[in-house]
Every structure is written in C-alpha cells, then in structure tokens.
Computed example of a mutant assay.
Amino acid sequence: MAVVKALDFYLPDELNASHPPEKRGIRRDHVRMMVLDRSSGAVRHDHFFHLDHYLEPGDMLILNNSRTIPAVLQAEWVSNTGLLTPKVEVRLARRKRDNTWEALIAAVPVNIGDKLIFPPDLSATVVSEKENSPLKVIQFSRKGADLFNRIYALGEPVRYEYIQHPWDLDYYQTVFASHPGSVEMPSAGRAFSWELLFKLKQRGIGVDFIQLHTGLSYLLDDNWHQSPEENEEEYHISEQTMEQILQTKAAGKKVIAAGTTVVRAIETAAKNGVLSGMTNLYIHQDSPLKIADGILTGFHEPLASHLDMLSAFISQQNLLHAYNQAIEAGYLWHEFGDMNLII
C-alpha cells in the first residue's frame, strides 16, 4: 500500500523553542495550545491549562510515565589493537537487555571487541554491529538499577541543534516520570502540572499511565535515516489500565493519548493483543485507530514521521492548514514548545 509522505512546510528558525517555558518566565502548564477538530478541521487557540474545557467526565487521558535518562556519555575508547582514544561520545539508542544497549559511538571505525571505559567505575564492550545501521551493540559491566544509577551520574541529556544551552536533566522530565528508559523525553506530557492533573480528575476525567521508552531518533548523519519500522521501542501497559481503556470505549467516552508514544503503545496492544514487548508499529493516514480518539502532542518539524501518525487523526489538508496558522500565530515547536490537541 502506498503511503503519502509526511508533510513538508517552511518552519522559521525563531519558532524552534530553545528554552524551557520556565526559563521564558511562564509555568510549564501555561504554554499555548492549538485545538483542532478532527472532522471539520476547525482551529481554536487557547492555553494548555484549559485542557479540561475540551474533555468530558468519563473521558480518559493516557500518559507515558517513562523517565528520561541522560543518554549522552563520554568514554575512553580502547580498540582491540590496544590503541587508546581518550574521549569519544557515546549516545545510547535503546535498551536490549538489562546490561545491553544499542548505541551510537562517534568514532570510526569501532569494531567488535573494542572497549569503552566510563571513568571511574563503568565499562562496556562492543559485542555486535546492527545491520545497515551505524549503531553498535554494547554490553556494560553493570546491569539493572546499578547501571541506571551510573548512567544518571555520568551522562547528559540528548539535545539537538536548536537547543544551544545544556539545560539540566530536570527540564527534560515530565512531573510524573517514574520508569527510567527514554533516551529522548516523551515530550507531550511535559506541559502537565500536578495541579492540572488533579483538576482533570476532580472533573471526572480519568488519568492513567503506560510506559514506552523512546529510542534515539537522529543518528548524527543525514545519510542514515531510521524509518518508524526500524525504530523498535519497548512498551508496557498494565492489565488494569487496559481494562479501564476498554470500559471507557464501551461507555462511548473518548480515550485521549498524550503523545505519539502513547498512541504507538495502545494501538500496538490493540492490534497484537500483547500488553508488553517491543513495537515497530508505523501509523499513517491509512491506519485504522482502534483505541485513540484524540491526541495531545507538540508541534513536529517538517517531514517528521510523527506527522504521518497525525494524519491518522485528521486529514493532511486540514493538518497543513492548521500548521500554517500555528506558524503565522507564532506557536513554538519541539519539546520546550507549545501544544496541539486533536480531538
């Protein structure tokens, strides 16, 4: 089946949010919000803390409580010939097992058997190469919580070229993040405050959580492009949460996914009947959505595959029209930017 490519448009540089809202003098839940009607394409302009105005009692909001890890590490590289390079950058891409990760190592050529030393007390060995990819598979000397503790002590968060300042890891966390594993922040949940979550629950709107640990989206070389099918991500949905989702659907109420990660997880579970595992589900304009009735998301850059997913909720024509309005109105893009509710 032919799939229409993601939307292309011109995004002015000044709309790339380089500072967290808090550093711009506003609360995280006071960013702007553009609301799109799925059927008509009608656009409304509001602020995120008014989210409860667009949901009804009995509706359910699903959030991703994966916690962002500081996935950029500095290592000493010891080749299998004994040559020492004192400093190379290692970007964790996705976890394979308790002590094994796919990683992007900014050194060429890194070979199987080479060692990476992360002073003072962590090391890893390159154990295999990923086919048709610059990623390597590395096995750490520690595992589980012990390994995560060392990563948190040594690493820095992934940041891209539109963010010039090395903001602390706390700025890359949602207030409810609890399960470490995301290489990049599940950013659709960033704007939530506990006050807003309590307000939603007081209005009878259900709030529940899943986990999907995001992988590394950019491999530092435009010659390497990961398709959504190549970007496998680990997810987990509890039986209790899925039961609540199904009861909400059966009652004729809406299930709203906070982020493309949540859509990917719940639609994978609906399609495969598996509540935990790995997903490479690619959602596009021809994909039937079995659970998600709406999506809360940020604004995505031109040609991003996330725009393909949004096309499953709203026509590409209406989406492009709305994005052009957002650009004219000065909405801010990316993880520190404004929000978009499609419902």
Rank of each mutant, 00 (worst) to 15 (best):
267 E>W: 10
150 R>W: 08
305 S>D: 11
296 L>K: 04
98 D>I: 03
230 E>L: 14
39 S>C: 08
24 R>Y: 02
14 E>N: 12
54 Y>G: 02
131 E>S: 13
25 G>C: 01
208 D>M: 03
326 A>Q: 01
191 A>N: 09
146 D>F: 04
257 A>I: 03
222 D>V: 08
103 A>P: 05
239 E>D: 12
312 A>M: 01
320 L>S: 10
259 G>M: 08
9 F>G: 06
312 A>K: 00
335 E>M: 11
334 H>M: 06
26 I>F: 12
89 E>Q: 15
109 P>R: 15
285 Q>A: 14
271 K>N: 13
343 I>C: 05
19 H>L: 08
154 L>H: 12
183 V>E: 00
334 H>T: 10
293 D>L: 04
115 K>I: 05
220 L>Q: 12
96 K>I: 15
172 Y>F: 15
235 Y>M: 02
17 A>D: 05
30 H>Y: 13
197 L>N: 07
65 N>L: 07
59 D>W: 11
255 V>G: 01
270 A>K: 11
269 A>N: 09
10 Y>V: 12
140 F>H: 06
12 P>V: 05
265 A>G: 05
76 E>R: 14
212 L>F: 08
201 K>P: 01
53 H>M: 08
276 S>E: 07
49 F>Q: 13
187 S>Q: 03
35 V>W: 01
285 Q>T: 01
177 A>T: 03
266 I>P: 13
275 L>H: 13
35 V>Y: 01
137 V>R: 08
90 V>D: 12
178 S>M: 10
20 P>W: 04
41 G>L: 01
217 S>E: 07
81 T>R: 14
154 L>D: 08
144 G>H: 09
38 R>G: 02
225 H>D: 13
102 E>M: 13
224 W>I: 00
195 E>Q: 13
337 G>E: 01
47 H>K: 03
176 F>C: 04
163 I>W: 10
42 A>P: 00
32 R>V: 07
154 L>K: 09
208 D>L: 04
276 S>L: 00
202 Q>K: 11
176 F>S: 05
71 A>G: 15
42 A>W: 12
239 E>I: 06
143 K>H: 11
41 G>Q: 05
141 S>Q: 08
236 H>Y: 10
18 S>D: 09
128 S>P: 02
248 T>R: 12
19 H>R: 11
229 E>N: 06
155 G>L: 03
84 L>A: 09
91 R>V: 04
230 E>K: 15
